Simulated assay, not measured.
Amino acid sequence: MRLTGATFFDIAAQDPWAVCSPAPASILPRILPGADHLISYHVLTAGRCFARIVGKEAIPVEAGEVVVFTKSDPHIMSSTPDLRADPPTADVLDIAAASQTPFPINYVKDGTMSARLVCGYLACDALPFNPLLEALPPVIKAGDVKGDGGWLGQFIKLAVSEVAEKRAGSETVLTKLSELMFVDVLRRYVESLPPQHTGWLAGLRDPHLSKALALIHDRPAHSWTLEALAKESALSRTVLAERFTRLVGMPPMHYLAKWRMQIASELLSAGNSNVASIAADIGYESEAAFSRAFKKMIGVPPSAWRLGIRTASGFGSEASETEGGPEGR
């Protein structure tokens, strides 16, 4: 999954306080144009607070912890669990987008600051197929309030330093740090999953399935068969098919077909390659065969996707599960 990060707000607050997330449609065009999915994160560098998706139970957050909202759900950060807030207005977002980030917001009036947060966003493509996003829960909290010697703890220390000193290039540093922070949060989440957990992340934890997934991801244009994947993964065809389907949620050849279309959609959106070369890059012998398969799986032809026309209707429902990938290669 390709990420683009932006560290956007530096919030100093005094009890009682509450802030509401902007709607993705209002923030994406201003800071991360062209992306179709927004992940929000909030790093609490001092004090304590609560985080909650609107309408859901609040989660306590301590200094040294980060909360990541993975599904673009509207959410509130506040000093107590039940406080409400309105999202920032369009003019505030315009001013923030035109300023050096992180944009400071001061909710301290005449008392002592009770909490400080660094808030930002990560953008990625959710369509047509993003198995990681589909596997994540709506909210992930990570960190160590007693002091963390790992990467996440180092990120928080560096973020505090960059925000305070505002040195040249700090905006770029914070952006890259936020992308690495997200990777570390994901690692911690995967490590915390129970042994009986199923899904794409469970597949990554399985040494045999992780090998099969890596082969598909690294060599999507290869003429993979179930037998070839099984041999490389040190499993029999039957065991690979059964375990892959049970943990990942679809047969290996179905996953391969979807992954090829995900790569194709990214290349089409980038606009730097023609359809024929994209077809070859993902293992199709002809542009016509690729175009038929793309429209069958995605719902629109490659030319429409390149123009920004999106639809999820029927995606994946007719993907070929025959060995070697999509029909008519």
Score class of each variant (00 low, 15 high):
K231E: 12
V173K: 04
P252K: 15
L235W: 11
L117G: 00
L235H: 04
T238H: 09
Q154K: 14
G150N: 02
H254F: 05
K166N: 10
D125Q: 14
L177W: 03
S170A: 12
V190T: 12
L240G: 01
H208L: 06
H217G: 08
L240W: 04
L133T: 00
A221Y: 01
A228P: 03
L127I: 05
L240V: 08
P195W: 00
A135H: 01
A228T: 13
H217E: 14
F244P: 03
I216S: 03
K231I: 10
L117T: 02
Y189V: 04
H217V: 10
L117V: 08
L136K: 04
A142Y: 03
R243W: 06
D148Y: 00
G199P: 10
V248W: 05
H254Y: 11
W151L: 15
F244H: 11
L229D: 01
D206Q: 11
M250I: 01
R187H: 13
M250K: 15
S236Y: 09
K157W: 02
R167A: 14
A168L: 08
F129N: 08
D206H: 15
M253H: 09
P251M: 02
E165R: 10
L226N: 07
T225G: 12
A168C: 05
P131V: 11
D184M: 08
L177Q: 07
V173H: 05
R167K: 15
G147N: 10
W224V: 12
E227A: 15
P207H: 06
W151D: 05
P128Y: 12
E227F: 09
E162P: 14
L209D: 09
L127K: 11
R188K: 11
N130G: 07
V183K: 14
L152E: 11
W200R: 08
N130T: 00
A202P: 00
P131Y: 02
Y255M: 09
H222A: 14
D206V: 12
Q154L: 12
S210M: 04
R187F: 10
F155T: 01
G149N: 12
T175Y: 02
P138W: 00
G199N: 05
K157N: 10
E179F: 05
V248C: 05
H222T: 14
G143R: 14
E165H: 08
K166P: 06
M181G: 06
A142V: 03
V185N: 05
V239C: 07
G249P: 07
P131I: 12
S210Y: 01
L180P: 00
A164I: 10
L229Y: 05
K211C: 12
V190L: 09
H254W: 13
L229S: 03
R246L: 10
E179T: 14
H217N: 11
E162V: 04
A164L: 13
N130P: 03
R205Y: 06
L158R: 08
G199D: 02
V248G: 03
K146P: 01
S170G: 00
D218P: 00
K231Q: 12
V185L: 09
T238L: 10
G143S: 08
L215P: 15
L209G: 13
T175W: 01
Q196N: 12
P220Q: 00
V118N: 01
G169W: 10
A164S: 14
A241T: 05
L186W: 07
R205I: 07
P207K: 02
F129A: 10
